[in-house]
Design a protein around this nucleic acid. Sequence first.
DNA 1: AGAAGTTAGTTGACAAAGTCAACACACTTA
DNA 2: TAAGTGTGTTGACTTTGTCAACTAACTTCT
Lengths: 142, 142
Amino acid sequence: MHNDSVTDIVFNILHSYKMAMRSTLKDHEAGLNGMNVKCLTFISKSQNCTANDIVIFFNRDKAQIARLIKEMITNGWLTKTANPEDKRSQLLQLTEQGKELAELIRVTELQIYEKMQENIPAEQLASFKSTALMISANLKAF
Amino acid sequence: MHNDSVTDIVFNILHSYKMAMRSTLKDHEAGLNGMNVKCLTFISKSQNCTANDIVIFFNRDKAQIARLIKEMITNGWLTKTANPEDKRSQLLQLTEQGKELAELIRVTELQIYEKMQENIPAEQLASFKSTALMISANLKAF
DNA sequence: AGAAGTTAGTTGACAAAGTCAACACACTTA
DNA sequence: TAAGTGTGTTGACTTTGTCAACTAACTTCT
């Protein structure tokens, strides 16, 4: 069957990417799911991150995020500390273990990112990226 | 935050694509989920499709597919008929309603596909596609 | 200041999606 | 024909995502 249109190829790229991430990360850390990866990365890149920041950025249900954070705290990846600027919310910070995990994720993503681009000239990649941006913009206008 | 690397853009394309599909299709038919769309398309493109063909093609659990098919039969989109060549399996066929749905999906995909490519020269698209194939191949080798 | 409205986060109840194992029945092959 | 394999169904379960109600804290308006 198909697997030939631009859509299919783009779908394929993302699928392979996810598979690569999964297989690499699962070997190192059990109980690490997609949202964990996204949250750890997001928190490590933010300063003063709250649950609500995650809710907004990833456009998820706040109940889901509350439970995800609780789980990650249980896992010893995060801590919650009172937000001095707003007592309703709490600041999320990575523990040492959390930082190590975030670094592992960063390195893994980088490895995959480099593998993706192997043997493709820089100009060709630049052109790919600009076309991808055009496609993305077209789709958003749908 | 990010949304700038090739991965992010590719991720964006797919996300926008899914959103476009969802908003267009959900208006027409309630209770139509992602796997329904994939299955209807797959069956409409196959002849003599069985549950197992779907299991293999989409690499899903056979229990999941069995329930999905049962649901689609209940919805009046499919029929199961005995397979004369192998009494273990049953041939899946679209009803008139199922065919209409599959056609709606096809047309919607086409519309989105055309919108994606708007104002992008054919050569640029061809180059995009060939780069995408290279990236996909690189990732599979990971 | 104080009432009314809004926001951050938690929890219960639930729905949807996917997974695992056991099973019945049909086919294959030695 | 017995043993093994393939197809599909079902029960029980986990994971993921969703909705609504609620508390506590902040904001706004008068």
